[in-house]
Structure formats: C-alpha cells, structure tokens
Amino acid sequence: MRVVFWGTPDFAVRSLKELLNSKHKVVAVVTQPDKPKGRGKKLTPPPVKVVAEEAGIPVFQPEKVKNNEQLYTALKELNPDIFVVVAYGKILPPKIINLPRYKTVNVHASLLPEYRGAAPIHRAIMDGKSKTGVCIMEITEELDAGDIYDCREIPISETDDIVSLHDKLAEEGAKLLIDVLNRIEQGKAEKTPQKHEEATYAKPIKKEEGKIDWNRPAVDIFNQVRALKVWPKAFTIFRDQQIKILDAQVVDTDSIGKAGEIVEVKKGKGFVVQTGKGKLLIKQVQFPNSKPITADEAVRGYHITVGETLQ
C-alpha cells in the first residue's frame, strides 16, 4: 500500500523504520516543524524527519493541518491508500482523515479504551498498573475513540521506567502496525468498537506533577519517580534547594520517622527516606547545575546525615 506517515518523536521512529522495511511504500512523511532546543536554541528537526530524510522520503512540516488546502492538495496528489499516525502531535480534521482509500489508522500506547489521550505510558506507570499495551485503531473525530483493529498486552515490571516501557511499546506497536496493514490490504482486517463507557483519559504531564509529597505512600512516590524520569523528573526540596530524584526503591512498610525524614544511610547504596507509608531508598539524585550522581556519591560528597529532611 501507498502510505503517508504522520509522526514526530522517538516513539514514532520505530514504526516508520518498520514500514520502510516492509512491502508497503512510504510516499511521504508529515511531521512537526523544527523547534529550537538547548541553550543555544538551535533549530532541531524532529526524530522522524531525520529518519525520513535519510531514507529519501519527502517531508511535509505544516504549521497547521486544519484548513490547509495546500497540504490537502499535495497529499491527494500522492494517491495514498492509507495514512498512518504515530504520536504526530496534532488532531487531524475529518477531511484529512477520510482522504485515503483505507482512511487513517493510529498506533496508540495503551489498552484502549483505557488511557486515551496524550500521556498513556506515563499515566500507566504513575497509577501503578501491572500491564499496559498498544492498539492499532481507526482515527475518528473524537480523541482516540475509533474502532480497534488489534491490541497487544505488555506487562509492566517493577524495573520498568518511562524509558524502558516506551521502547517496549514502540517496538510492539511497530510490529503490530505492519500486521494490521497487511490484513487491511488483504481484506481480512476486522474492527471492534470501543466500550466508550469504560474510557479513561491520560492528560498531558505538567511540570508541577514532579513535586514529591512525602506524605504519600512509598510505592506511589516510586511510581512517580520512574514515570517522570525523563521530564519533568521527580523533585524535592533539600537544604533549601531543589534536587531531582532519578531512581529509588521501596524497601519496607515500617514507620520510624516523620514523612520526608532521612532515617538511614546505607553505605554503597544511598539513603532511606520515610514516607506516609513505608520507606524509600534513594539511589540516584541530581543537584542544581550538576550531573546525575548516585545517592551514595551524594551522601559522601554532600555529607548527608540521618535526621535531615526532604520537603
């Protein structure tokens, strides 16, 4: 099939590469405009654009999609069989969705109808879920509400964080995408309507969600740390400055101090903080204007002691 691929971040790259290695032909890629990044604010292309240009695929980077007749005409001239959307970043209007012969499909990183919306991977980890998955669905006007072609379930282990789970879902989603496209082409694809009454929403992550409340249970803070490891990173106030907690581990459910108090220093491992329920071993931290270091290095370098508090 002739495919136009819509995607922007790293999550979409795996699906694009899988498509490029399949029997289907990617005739164009639509992605977000280049954006300034880093201290120098240098214009940086989206990861999907980099892969597309390396493969010699034409790239469109419209500022807007809705009411963009120039884009619509250019896409129509490509005579596409199907549009594939993977984390593109904007909602497509019906005129675009319905343009191709087989319309438009989406790779979504949750077991729909659970976690519709922008941050399904983060929310699944933060909510302490033991499993998630990826679904290929048909795009409709309502957000992530289209009929489902197929889903794959993926367990969430205690060692998973946003990085590892992101990669697992991207890989599984890419494989499932090709399988579904093959079935659509062969006329063997079946769709199942979502149970809309069971829908939940994964709203975008906000920076303030990184603030740790030590009155919460240790397991909840652990989930917060691993879900927000890339951005905005879980943070707390220590010695009147904000530090980031990058890795942690629930150690037990006992209470021997007040919430936020450092109750033990473990040589070679880090320091233990009392929470509202249970204790958390802090394993990796980042101080302002510094690189990430192990909590053991922090204990030795900053002379962290029992009785100090995190707020």
Rank of each mutant, 00 (worst) to 15 (best):
N67Y: 08
E18V: 15
D81I: 11
F60I: 05
R2A: 13
V50K: 11
E54H: 02
Q32K: 13
F5T: 08
G56P: 07
Y72D: 14
A12V: 00
F11R: 08
T44Y: 12
D81R: 14
S22E: 08
K64D: 09
F5Q: 07
K41N: 10
I82E: 02
D34K: 13
S15A: 15
P62V: 00
Q70S: 14
V30F: 08
K41D: 15
I57P: 00
N67G: 07
E69I: 03
K49A: 05
L19Q: 00
D10M: 14
F5A: 10
P36M: 06
V30M: 05
S15I: 11
Q70K: 11
S22Y: 13
K35A: 15
F5N: 06
E54Q: 14
L16P: 04
K23D: 15
T73I: 10
K23S: 15
E77G: 10
L71I: 12
E53Q: 06
K66G: 04
N21F: 13
V51M: 02
T8H: 11
F5P: 00
T73H: 14
F11I: 03
Q70E: 09
K17L: 10
F83Y: 03
T44E: 14
K49R: 06
H24D: 06
R2M: 07
K42N: 12
K17F: 05
T73Y: 09
P47S: 12
G40F: 08
N68C: 06
S22D: 11
K17I: 07
V51Q: 02
L75T: 01
P9S: 03
I82M: 01
T31N: 11
H24E: 04
P45E: 07
K49Q: 05
D34C: 07
N21L: 15
E77F: 08
V30Q: 04
V29C: 11
V4Q: 00
A52H: 04
G38L: 09
P36I: 15
Q70A: 12
T8P: 12
